[in-house]
């Protein structure tokens, strides 16, 4: 480079490039916002909102809830077993064989395996007093209305459970059946075997 050319250089620039300011191009802003939006949509659909219980292939807590086995005989039987073991099993024994001087057996009991369930359903709803013959043996004990506080669905599940467990083979009871029976019996005092026999099965 000759002297003439050098003298043309403006004073004060030492050859170092210097950054200048300029506006961000609008298209970058648009693309960034679009990517942010798409990212948000993807997050919305696939994050499960960081719920600890949501694992792929489920994408949200609502979807996972849909896949819970809520209905069906298996779910009802499991619910019936649970209620039986917490409420009834204490006296009637978890295996349904009853306990001497506490409660008669339910397994093989003619009161449990009747064709209809109308007599059976009265017992947990109202309680039972006085003599009752179960599987060829006399029992004279008082039972409190243990099922009165249970929901219709729970009582139906537990009645179905005792009617279909331990070799018992009787029909299922639905929550609607229990609701209807509960509405009819109202606040009747503890029922006796003779009164039960006067009700149609």
């Amino acid at each position: 480079m000759n002297d003439e050319a050098r003298s043309n250089c403006p004073a004060g620039t030492g050859g170092e490039p210097e950054a200048t300011r300029s506006a961000v191009p609008m298209w970058i802003v648009v693309v960034a916002l679009l990517l942010l939006f798409l990212g948000g949509v993807y997050f919305d659909h696939h994050s499960g909102w960081f719920n600890a219980r949501v694992y792929s292939p489920y994408v949200s807590a609502e979807e996972l809830e849909l896949y819970q086995p809520k209905s069906g005989a298996a779910a009802a039987a499991a619910q019936g077993k649970k209620v039986y073991e917490t409420v009834c099993g204490i006296c009637h024994n978890p295996d349904g064989m009853g306990k001497p001087n506490q409660a008669p057996p339910l397994a093989g009991s003619e009161w449990v395996t009747t064709a209809g369930f109308h007599r059976l359903a009265q017992i947990p709803l109202l309680g039972l007093s006085g003599n009752i013959q179960v599987a060829g043996k006399d029992w004279n004990l008082n039972m409190a209305p243990m099922g009165a506080a249970l929901s219709d669905a729970d009582l139906a599940a537990v009645l179905t459970y005792i009617r279909t467990s331990w070799g018992n083979k009787a029909g299922a009871v639905t929550a609607d059946d229990v609701k209807a029976i509960r509405a009819v019996v109202g606040g009747h005092p503890a029922i006796s075997a003779a009164q039960l026999n006067s009700i149609p099965e």
Partner: peptide, 13 residues
């Protein structure tokens, strides 16, 4: 090592 129980977060029949 038995991961064979159906759970709420991994339901199966």
């Amino acid at each position: 090592l038995k991961a064979d129980a159906p759970l709420y977060e991994a339901p199966f029949t």
